[in-house]
Design a binder for these strands. Sequence first.
DNA 1: TCTGGGGTCCTAGGACCC
DNA 2: TCTGGGGTCCTAGGACCC
Length: 420
Amino acid sequence: MPYPINIHSFPQAILHLDANAFFASVEQAVNPELMGKPVVVGKERGIVTAVSYEGKALGIKRGMTIREVQKKFPEVIILNSDYEKYSLYSIKMFDILKKFCPIVEEYSIDEAFADLQGLRGYLHQSYETIGLNIKETIKRALGIKVSIGISLTKVLAKIASNYKKPDGLTLISGREIHRYLRDLPVSEVWGIGPQRAALCEKLGIYSALDLASASEEFIRKHFSKPVYEIWLELRGIQVYPVVASTKDQYKSLSKALSFVPTEDKEFLLAQLAFNLERACFKARQYGLLAKRLIVFLKDEEFQTHSFEIKMSLPSAYPKELLPLLTQAFERLYKKEVKFRQVGVILADLTSKRVFQLSLFKRDHSNSQGCLETLYRSVDKINIKYGRTTLVHGVCLPITKEKPLKKGSSLKIPLLSINLT
DNA sequence: TCTGGGGTCCTAGGACCC
DNA sequence: TCTGGGGTCCTAGGACCC
């Protein structure tokens, strides 16, 4: 396939790799019988989380209910999602990419950026050849098709990888940028969401080229910093570096659940407490402790109301955090307002090991040590018998009448204990 | 004591992404 | 996709301090 591109005009180059319909592709790769057939993942949630290209061709989209798919397309193969399997494939895929270019940023489970600058000379290959080799190696080793885009900046590389979707390879050189931006709606540029797109339209900017051609003065006058940076990237000026790092370190960690809007105070607090349990559980699994706790409620108009509490000692233990959660909730709750979602964020996360080695040296005689021991046992039981076997009593009213939104399946705790 | 200007830090809320 | 869940980063405004 010809790529009529002057690859010698690259002063710098960034590659974006995007696995196509990743979860469904992995399932097809694992089970060759599924190859070429419409496959849908997300059975356990009742909602389509991923669709193979054969399924997309039928008109199946993300977010559809599984029931609807079964009814309309009985031939479709419907599977539970298996994150561990996908993570494994993700790691293998990125490992291959790293063999070609050492500087790789794992952006999400199925996307990565790589800095190609200087590699052309080093590998004695054109960027196009490098891209093709990466694609072929991944296809051969893993049975997965990916799309690759190569251009001057991250934003342009994103546009390039998106240009030809299943199994594509697109290079955008400096002198060709305008050709790719001309027919691209500004709302499809990475970083331009509904709000910024609406502002663009108001200012007479419709295509990505309109945005890129605006003057610096105009951009600075009407837009915020992120849009200014996108503007630079569209013009081929690198703003966002490729940060080589594995994406396994969280800066924050959150849990939230939506329900039919209610002002039931006991119910809302129970939901919050349950979210806190889940967030803390996850933090403990990663060996993390939080220095800040943020509690938020979303009202019927989708406005969020949040309150932040700083902990004197980092924690991932509901026993310690529940009183703080309750305080925060009291400040945010208004009895005349209905809320549709509540959640917690654990922020300023630090590694448990580092914290303990420096301060406590695994001393179990202090309260933190006791809590850690206690929760280690709780976690063992919950892992063995289900995540909500042991929870704090305050969570129990989540089982109250409030019907949950479609598709959500909340497991009801078997047992609650008062951890003292 | 008042006025003014300017810097930094913090926090609640927004916007966006996958 | 009339809006699910889990992340990151930015910003406006207040508090506080010279």
